[in-house]
Each structure stands twice: as C-alpha cells, then as structure tokens.
C-alpha cells in the first residue's frame, strides 16, 4: 500500500495495463517524452518505449481515427484527448464510429479503446478546459462513460476500462488530480464498470453524485451527522450505464433523494437518474426528487468559477429542503 494522488493512481493503472498486455498503446498530444500536460503518463515512455507510448500531431479527430484503425488491426489503444472540451473535434470518431463498429459487424469486430480525458472546474483553467460534457456521450449506445471520484477507484477503473473490449470514455477530474490521496494497493486490482458505489451508508436521505461532487456531498453528510441526520452517499462512477439497482435500493431505504452534478442542469446525467427513479420508484418517495446542478449558462469565465460551481453549501441547502418537505 502506498498513499497516492488521483493522478498517480491513474499512472499506476496505466503502468499496469502496459505491463499486462503488449498490445496496449498510449498516445496523444504531449503524452510521450513530456509525460502529459498533467504528468499522468510520466515515466511511461521511458519504461515501455516509444513504440508503446507516443506523441501525435495536434488533431483530435486524427487521434481517435488512429485509435479505430489501430483497434481494427489488433491493438488496444488508450488515446488521450488533452481536455474534454476538445472532444467536439472528434465526436464522429466516438459517436459515429467506434461505438457502432461491434453492431455494424454483427458482433464480429471489437473496439477495445479507452479514451482518457480531463475535465472539471475549480482550477481556473482557460476556456473549454473545465466543461462537464458527459451528457454528449452518455446517450450513445455502444459507449461506456465512467468517472472516478477518488484515487482508489481511479486506478481500479482505468484497469477495468482498458481490459474491456468495448469503447470507454474515461473522464478524469482536474480538481481531484492532486487534491486528495488514498491508500492504494500495489499491483493489479479492478473496480467494476457499470457499478455505482455506496461511499457512505445512511438512512434519512440519499445523495447521488459523481466525480468531484461526491466529496462535496460527503462534507454535507459529515456536517449533518452532528445533527443526527443520516445521509447515504452514492458515487455513480459509471455515467453510462447508470447503475439503477444501487440507486433504487437506497431510495427504498431512505425515501428521499437529491441528485448532484457539476454540469449545468440541462446537461449532466441528473435528469436521466431522476426519470429512472420517477418511472420505477415513485411510490417509494416521500418528497420530490431534489437536484443540485450548475446554472444553465456557458461554463464561467475563470474568475467566476467559485460563484458558479455547485458546492457543499448548495447541496446542504437542497438536502434540508427535501428533508423538510
């Protein structure tokens, strides 16, 4: 065991899959000698060589097109898109191409591609670096979307994503990269895809969150515990598919739910989770479904981030409102 940051945990996970499977390839803009703009791939080229970890020209569509061709010739690509805001350049490769190829070939073609991409606010990045764009991709059949909220999950999920034989969009939160450390087992372990995680058990209300908002939700749970309010916190981890079983079990226990996302209310996955609960468990609810999300504006200019991003205070306010309904 070693105490590792979220970013180091991802590096360890990548190191592991490079060791385990000689067909894995890491490539993207500045991921080679430079070790990535956030050092996520630091040391990997030196250890595994330029044939396995390499830089590409600056063109996102080219990078993901390259991934598709490499997958078609027997490789297991782990491309990086430097910031999630730049995936717009490559939407066809993700939505129009790799996610559809197994279906197109009646199950006879695999696209074992894991696209790593950082996103998330709170670090005063330039425009189109921090946007939460998961909703562009969670409605895409054939594609999984996952995002870890802590270092332990980050390593286990990246290994699961790479070992999976279908495309996975792996979202890494910029604010979490160096802001937290976990005890991480050495060597290989996996965290399952398609599964949410009850990160804190409680009986009075359920908060469903993901990525950096999980930590904001946990702060609220800590605070309310002092008032003998027991909050259950679910970390979705998988944004597509949504693990409804775990959510439904919690709602049946607490009868109250608040959904939290960093994305704008019109974006994110909150609306989808709300509709699943309404469709399947409405009779278990004692109050309306509460939602915490960013305002429906463009992602803010850097100086306004703190006023715009949903935080623990916003979550606490909504939780109290639903509890007192």
């Amino acid at each position: 065991m070693a105490k590792l940051t979220y970013i180091k945990a991802i590096t360890e996970g990548l190191d592991q899959v490079l060791q385990d499977d000689p067909k894995t390839l890491i490539f993207g803009e500045d991921v080679g000698k430079n070790g990535g703009v956030f050092r996520t791939t630091d040391g990997l080229q030196a250890k595994f060589g330029e044939d396995r970890v390499f830089d590409t020209p600056l063109a996102e569509s080219g990078i993901l097109g390259l991934s598709i061709g490499l997958a078609a010739t027997g490789w297991r690509p782990i491309p990086e898109i430097q910031f999630m805001g730049f995936t717009f350049e490559a939407v066809d490769s993700i939505v129009g191409q790799m996610s559809r190829n197994r279906f197109r070939f009646n199950g006879k073609m695999s696209m074992p591609i894991t696209i790593r991409t950082p996103f998330g606010g709170g670090t005063h990045t330039a425009e189109l670096h921090g946007d939460s764009m998961e909703n562009i991709f969670t409605g895409v059949p054939g594609l999984r979307v996952v995002t870890p909220s802590n270092p332990y999950d980050a390593k286990g999920l990246i290994i699961s994503a790479v070992e999976n034989n279908d495309p996975v969009l792996f979202m890494e939160n910029l604010k979490l990269y160096r802001s937290m450390k976990d005890e991480i087992p050495e060597g290989k372990y996996t965290v399952p895809l398609d599964k949410a995680n009850v990160v804190r058990e409680g009986n009075d209300i359920t908060i469903v969150a993901y990525s950096a908002e999980v930590n904001e939700a946990l702060k609220v749970a800590d605070k309310l515990e002092k008032e003998n309010i027991s909050v259950e916190v679910i970390d979705l981890r998988s944004l597509s598919p949504i693990d409804t079983d775990t959510i439904f079990a919690s709602v049946e226990k607490t009868h109250k739910v608040v959904l939290v996302q960093e994305a704008q209310k019109m974006a994110g996955v909150g609306a989808h989770v709300a509709s699943e609960i309404a469709e399947n468990k409405i009779m278990s609810l004692d109050a309306p479904i509460g939602r915490v999300a960013a305002p429906d504006s463009i992602f803010p200019f850097a100086m306004a981030e703190n006023d715009w991003l949903p935080n623990a205070d916003d979550i606490e306010e909504k939780v109290r409102e639903i509890l007192n309904y």
């Binding site: 390839l25 097109g65 390259l66 598709i68 061709g69 078609a72 010739t73 490789w75 066809d92 191409q97």
Partner: peptide
Amino acid sequence: SMFPQIIIGAQYVQAAGAALGIKKN
C-alpha cells in the same frame, strides 16, 4: 475491410490508424 463508410472523410483517419497498426504488427 471496414464497412462502406457513410461519413465522408472518416475512412481517411481510420486508414491512417490501420496503416500504423500494420506497421507496428
């Protein structure tokens, strides 16, 4: 072969990837 590509241009970026795969193989 890939299937006949409907999205004009997509086959070009993918062909570059397959060519690199062929080279690496």
